[in-house]
Design a protein around this nucleic acid. Structure first.
Length: 473
DNA sequence: CTATGGCACGGATT
DNA sequence: AATCCGTGCCATAG
């Protein structure tokens, strides 16, 4: 923030603008790409001063790029740099994923689209026998309006109107679909999908009632792993909340299509599905023997967002009654664009440093996680720690392995120990008690209390020693 | 008596 | 200022 240093020189309106800038940058920073898309789309439709045109943003700094010109300030940076340094860039809009329902586009190489297209047929086949001819048509209609996540893109009343039939008829069909495999397809929201899946797992759930409430009321907290808050909301302890959240995350999938067709990888492994699409993608790239990381930060805007020059012209001869409002619009538009640029800049720089620090973790896996704190990263970047907090909050990263994890996990202080713990338990001959586990860990350099071993064990879903014994025999 | 889970405290982190 | 996390102490189960 270059402008705030000479506050004394600013006029009140400039000062007001500066604080507005700050405030908006902060909120934008805290948004993930999905939320940002919504925010920007809303701004475009509400603010006549903004326009979206063909064009690109500089993949490095996010600034507007006219035509095919290369950003003069930072183009060389993207090319140069030694091979140890990761390449970080904003991904070009045309590679970006479509916002929601507009045309199923391939989200990532890991998820085969061919299979997704088969999904409707697969489901229809299961339920066909239970349907009348006219219901079949409805089912087909519903199934073809699924998005790549397996969620419905239309609403039931809409379909009902289309066929001139009562909503309850449509509902009956939808219900069949939702209870077919994969469980929850055709739900109209992630929450609904989760609830349907929960229903069938009731006996296994620690507390079905609480799970349901967590899904209904605490979805946001759930995906952000804010167990404490979730606990408050549900009126239970943090630990119980965590247990609930973990059960949900481990056993249910908010995107039914993907649970089934997509990331089948390690469903049982830690942190399986995050509840968002990745905001950042990290890939590996071979470069004369060395592995170089390529970090792709999602840029939510398709095309170039800029001030509409026509609007600016019109402002000159604006009618008296409109002039004031138009001026405000223009200011806000400029502000938004500036703030967006700053948001990107911050995130790109953040990832640059983070990718270097956690390279081992990214490439080799959980065991090589370094415990980094947000504040240490903050002063490395020269920003306030709350800035880092905001930048990290609510965002998710797709690792080279294809796993999607919350960005916050890069700051997990105990993941490496937990991984070591899992390894010990995995190799143990006889079930070891927590005390013994603590000793083993100490030998590996991880000095933690026996009580803490128990907690980690819990976090990883490892049963206590005596129960493991029962299981072994 | 040993192994664990619950609760709560204090220091660190955000 | 609010929240998270590791730990110690105590109760309970086996």
């Amino acid at each position: 923030m270059t402008f705030q240093s000479q506050g004394a020189f600013q006029s009140p309106s400039q000062r007001a603008q500066a604080t507005a800038h700050l405030a908006q940058t902060m909120t934008l920073l805290g948004l993930n790409s999905l939320e940002l898309i919504q925010k920007v789309e809303a701004a475009i439709s509400e603010n006549p001063a903004l326009e979206l045109v063909e064009g690109r943003h500089c993949p490095n700094c996010g600034r507007s790029l006219q035509a095919e010109a290369v950003c003069p300030t930072c183009a060389y940076k993207a090319k140069a740099g030694n091979s140890d340094e990761p390449i970080v860039f904003l991904n070009p809009p045309e590679d970006n994923y479509a916002p929601r329902s507009s045309g199923a586009q391939e989200l990532s190489d890991d998820i085969p689209t061919a299979d997704i297209q088969d999904l409707p047929a697969y489901v229809l086949q299961q339920i066909a026998s239970e349907l009348e001819a006219d219901e079949l048509e409805i089912a087909a209609h519903l199934l073809t309006s699924l998005n790549e996540d397996g969620l419905l893109t239309t609403t039931l009343p809409e379909v009902a109107r289309f066929y001139h039939r009562p909503v309850s008829d449509i509902e009956a069909v939808a219900d069949l679909i939702r209870h077919a495999d994969p469980l929850g397809v055709g739900a109209s929201s992630p929450q609904e999908a989760l609830l349907i899946q929960l229903e069938s797992l009731q006996e296994r759930a620690p507390d079905a009632e609480l799970c349901a409430r967590a899904i209904e009321e605490g979805m946001g907290l759930l995906s952000k792993h804010q167990y404490g808050e979730l606990g408050n909301l549900l009126g239970v302890s943090r630990l119980v909340a965590k247990e609930i959240a973990e059960f949900i995350v481990n056993n249910l999938s908010p995107y039914p299509a993907r649970a089934h067709w997509g990331n089948v990888r390690n469903v049982t492994a830690e942190a399986p599905a995050t509840y968002q699409r990745p905001d950042i993608i990290v890939r590996e790239q071979e470069e004369n023997g060395k592995i170089r990381l390529v970090v792709e930060v999602m840029w939510p805007i398709r095309g170039l967002l800029r001030i509409n020059p026509l609007f600016q012209e019109a402002l000159q001869e604006a009618p008296k009654d409109k002039a004031e409002q138009w001026k405000i619009d223009l200011e806000q538009a400029t502000l938004l664009i500036k703030c967006l640029a700053q948001r990107n800049h911050t995130i790109v720089r953040l990832m640059q440093v983070l990718a270097v620090l956690q390279k081992q973790f990214i490439v080799k896996g959980d065991a090589h996680m370094k415990p980094i704190t947000r504040s240490s990263l903050a002063d490395e970047l020269g920003v306030h720690e709350s800035t880092v907090s905001r930048a990290v909050a609510g965002k998710s990263v797709q690792l080279p392995s294809g796993k999607i994890v919350p960005l916050a996990q890069f700051f997990d202080r105990s993941l490496h120990i937990r991984t070591a713990l899992k390894k010990i338990v995995g190799n143990e001959k006889k079930p070891l008690s927590d005390t013994k586990l603590a000793k083993q860990l100490a030998e590996q350099g991880y000095e933690i209390a026996r009580r803490t071993v128990a907690k980690y064990r819990n976090m990883e879903g490892i049963l206590p020693a005596h129960m493991r014994k029962a299981l072994a025999s």
